[in-house]
Design a protein around this nucleic acid. Structure first.
Lengths: 257, 257
DNA sequence: GAGTGGTCTAGACCACGCA
DNA sequence: GCGTGGTCTAGACCACTCC
């Protein structure tokens, strides 16, 4: 206990030290550690491998990116559980907020959306739209934060009168949206880094790697709403089911004792 | 020209320097630079902002991760074009290698797959399977590398006799696979880092961030094949179309002059 | 207050692309 | 051979968590 990573002197190889280090650590994690265990601190680990702390950190960063480790300031570095499978695919042809989807409604505001969103919505770049904030929790951990942009024309019956801000208004927007007939949907997934806000909600530092899922909802021949959902890239595996397929919500593989 | 990023002294803020730096650079990229332009080198930039080179690099790394910059050793740092939209979604119910899909077949070998793949295929952990290598190019750039694992039971008529290795054999495997009736498919997307091999094919350094798309193909009641496709995360946006949706293969937004 | 990870510095040398 | 980004070092201090 505590010496299982050894004091391996890295032999001089042409391969970068941090890369070799990552491989060595990765194998040690597979064979010698179990989920949740805490590793020795960075200064000790660096000393054991005879490298500078910055070099060790480069290796740890990669392992964290791959979802193998979890680091928390003031606490330490622990072995991460396998990534959580998060279903984003199936539930074809339903609006957000439909009964029993995985999201929790948090609030609503009125903002001028980012240019990219405004273009997708075909609203003017200065035009304000409703934005519903929602969050998604899995295994007790927050895994995603969503901003759902809904232009006023998509929810015509939602008058300014007595729509209190906050979750009540958010629910009103979702309810009105669901009255439209959903004609189609398309999605894109890309890598991003967490904005300060999202980072806070996801319990990560700003700039943490995230998977950004952008969904456009089509109704009445145009884009009725756009959702931008930000998933923690370190802990999530996004799953897209298909009819006839057996959904796997969890990673059964990996990790010996 | 050459001085557009200014010599802005960063005022002392509680926010990390590299974060502020990233914001400043990001805005400069939006307003002052155009795609393909090369930035001043790292030593100069660091000096202008009055920070250490390592700090500047932290900001550049983030911007590269977000697909805003492209850096190449021995060459320099250039402004990246908007991410390429790569369709991975639609084409429902077709096997890989079907006429006119986006992939180019490169070769075939016989290997013991990684444990995770073996589990998905329900083959033994030591059992060898066919693996077809394919690559995908978009706008003249390699964007993805794929390994398609096919157990022998899925291609029973492919006898060992006269199956030359290389692309001929790869095509034979794909052809045999297409004779099965495809019952379903499911996908998962997660963040990974490029293995040395993939990195080479994608023209990146090992460890570069990639989006890993794992697809399981179901036929005859079991998993007939598993594809592991590795997309460059910096340059790609994965698109998942839906019937009734207008596919967008390219990012029309962003970037002024 | 002790211990952790996060930020930052000011250097050095290496690997690569190109002229 | 020169200029680029990539790796690495040995320090320092800060922000946070927990006792």
């Amino acid at each position: 206990m505590g010496d299982r990573v050894g004091t391996t002197q890295l032999e001089p190889v042409p391969e970068p030290k941090y890369w070799h280090l990552k491989t060595v650590l990765s194998e040690a994690l597979d064979s010698e550690f179990s989920v949740g265990e805490i590793l020795p601190n960075e200064r000790d680990l660096a000393a054991r491998f005879g490298v500078a702390r910055a070099t060790l950190r480069q290796a740890l960063e990669q392992l964290e990116l791959e979802g193998r480790l979890q680091r928390r300031r003031g606490v330490g570095t622990t072995v991460a559980p396998p990534r959580v499978g998060v279903a984003v695919g199936p539930a074809r042809h339903t609006w957000p907020g439909t009964a029993g989807d995985a999201w929790q409604t948090e609030g609503c505001a009125t903002v001028v959306p980012p240019a990219a969103v405004a273009d997708a919505l075909e609203t003017g770049r200065e035009e304000e739209v409703h934005v519903v904030r929602r969050s998604r929790v899995s295994r007790g951990q927050p895994v995603a934060a969503e901003l759902l942009y809904v232009p006023a024309v998509s929810v015509p019956d939602l008058t300014a009168i007595d729509t209190p801000s906050g979750t009540a208004r958010a629910r009103a927007v979702l309810r009105e949206l669901q009255r439209l007939e959903l004609e189609g949907r398309d999605r894109a997934v890309e890598l991003g880094s967490a904005r300060a806000e999202d980072a806070k909600e996801l319990d990560r530092l700003p700039g943490a790697p995230v998977l950004v899922v952008t969904t456009r909802f089509h109704a009445e021949g145009c884009t009725a709403a756009v959702s931008v959902a930000t998933y923690r890239a370190d802990t999530c595996r996004l799953t897209f089911g298909d009819e006839g397929a057996v959904e796997i919500h969890d990673g059964p593989e990996r990790r010996a004792s």
